[in-house]
Design a binder for these strands. Structure first.
Length: 407
RNA sequence: GGGGAGGUACCGAAGCGGUCAAACGGGGCAGACUGUAAAUCUGUUGGCUACGCCUUCACAGGUUCGAAUCCUGUCCUCCCCA
């Protein structure tokens, strides 16, 4: 491992505070940073992840990027795969009790999570731990003791619980254990700082509280805002289908990034891109004066971060071509059919996998959402002549293209 | 443990014996429009060998010519009391 020097406080704060919503308590953070700089001892920075959904998107990247910044400042970072807590299911976010996962699922998801997170974190400098390591061996007695350090009144103060309680929604008793388990992680790891989304505030504070109960130095809670999704209203989440996945194809990434409302251009630059700190004010202004080009710059930057400059250029060209000029893309998946079968258009569309059912295909045809070589097909009974050969460009819906080859 | 309310499509929510593949809203999808995959307007939204047929209204049975709607049992949720 490379020995890094820990820079002075002021310098660190500039980086640390980029995009944060809240640091509790900020004063203590400064003290810890001073101490750390003086003694050149890295702080222990903890981030827990819930491996229920292994597809990471830009929403996750906000917090992971913050973690990366701590790495670059020379601190010690610990990524906790919440394999044990995932079996409880965090009550926050989806206001619903989540189904418990099996151990195998959780382990597999954890692996996939780290693999994806490595696109943002420096894997060399990330300590990975699974919280089942210390949570699983706890006895019932240990759990009772832990639970005695928190009160029901404080527990139901928590937003999610309050709301669900008022709505007469189910709250399973074991959900109360989630924050405690997460807090126990902090105690076990003796963390100095815990990162989290602002929706994690309660959980992070429980960690702080428990550390105090156990006579430890209390962690600083650093909260990042929730990234608003491409729909411009709700937080980015796979279940709202308003996300940009970090594994997505360059073209999709670019297109989705362009679909965000103009007000989000700046927050995205600040939270999910690696543009230099001192360029931010300038970008903020451009986002207002020239939203179109600034948004293209944003889309390009995001795509470049995950796919490189060359792919980003291609994605931009692809967008210009298919969306702006409504032209046919350079590359598209090919589907080969045997001529002579006299295939109907509905079956052909189905075989491409662009739609889940032939009823859906029929609907699209009826609504004029299907073209063949640029010609709208409106008759669901349209079929390719028997014995016909050649290639056709099929377009289904707004942006699904395929090359049909009959031979 | 006792009493009451309720479980409807992706979500919320009507319907309470036929005219129900199921109103309405949200979401999704499509068309028009657009700097944009935004906003707005319009249409559409179970499946199929498709002007007809098949499977849906927690689950399993039953009554009836006919049930999402009535009856019985099971599972689940919420409220009040203990």
């Amino acid at each position: 491992m490379i020995k890094m020097s820990i820079p002075p406080v002021k310098e660190q704060l500039d980086v640390i505070e980029r995009g944060t919503v809240e640091i509790l308590p900020r004063e203590e953070l400064i003290q810890k940073l001073e101490q750390s700089h003086k003694t050149q001892t890295p702080l222990r920075v903890k981030l827990g992840c819930d491996p229920t959904r292994p597809d990471l998107h830009l929403g996750h990247s906000v917090i992971l990027r913050k973690m990366r910044q701590f790495q670059d400042l020379g601190h010690h970072t610990i990524l906790i795969i919440g394999d044990f807590t995932a079996m409880i299911g965090d009550p926050s976010g989806a206001n619903k009790t989540r189904p418990a996962l099996t151990r195998e699922d959780v382990v597999e998801n954890g692996r996939s999570y780290f693999e994806q997170a490595s696109k943002i974190l420096d894997p060399e400098r990330t300590e990975i731990v699974y919280n089942s390591e210390w949570l699983a061996p706890m006895s019932f007695e240990d759990v009772i003791r832990l639970a005695s350090h928190y009160t029901v009144a404080r527990m139901i103060e928590r937003d999610d619980f309050t709301k669900r309680y008022q709505n007469n929604d189910t709250i399973s008793l074991h959900e109360f254990l989630y924050p405690l388990a997460q807090g126990q992680d902090s105690v076990h790891l003796r963390s100095d700082i815990e990162l989290g989304g602002i929706d994690q505030k309660f959980n992070l504070l429980v960690g702080r509280h428990l550390q105090k109960e156990f006579g430890q130095s209390q962690q600083i809670c650093l909260m990042m805002p929730l990234l608003v999704g491409t729909d411009g209203t709700m937080k980015m989440s796979k279940s709202y289908d308003n996300y940009i996945g970090i594994d997505e194809k360059p073209e999709d990434m670019y297109g989705k990034a362009l679909s965000i409302p103009d007000e989000l251009i700046y927050p995205y630059f600040e939270l999910v891109t690696d543009v230099e700190q001192d360029r931010l004010p300038e970008l903020k202004q451009q986002a207002e004066s020239d939203p179109r080009n600034t948004k293209h710059k944003l889309a390009w930057t995001i795509t470049r971060m995950y796919h490189g400059a060359e792919k980003a250029d291609q994605a931009r060209d692809h967008f210009e071509k298919t969306v702006v000029r409504k032209d046919v893309p350079d590359e598209m998946p090919e589907f080969v059919f045997a001529s002579g079968s006299g295939s109907g258009i509905l079956d052909v569309i189905r075989e491409t996998g662009f739609v889940p059912s032939s009823s859906e295909a029929r609907r699209l045809v009826a609504q004029g959402g299907v073209t063949l070589d640029g010609e709208k097909i409106t008759d669901p009974r349209y079929s390719f002549e028997t014995g016909k050969t050649g290639e056709f460009v099929l377009k289904v819906g707004k942006r699904k293209f395929g090359k049909l080859i009959f031979r």
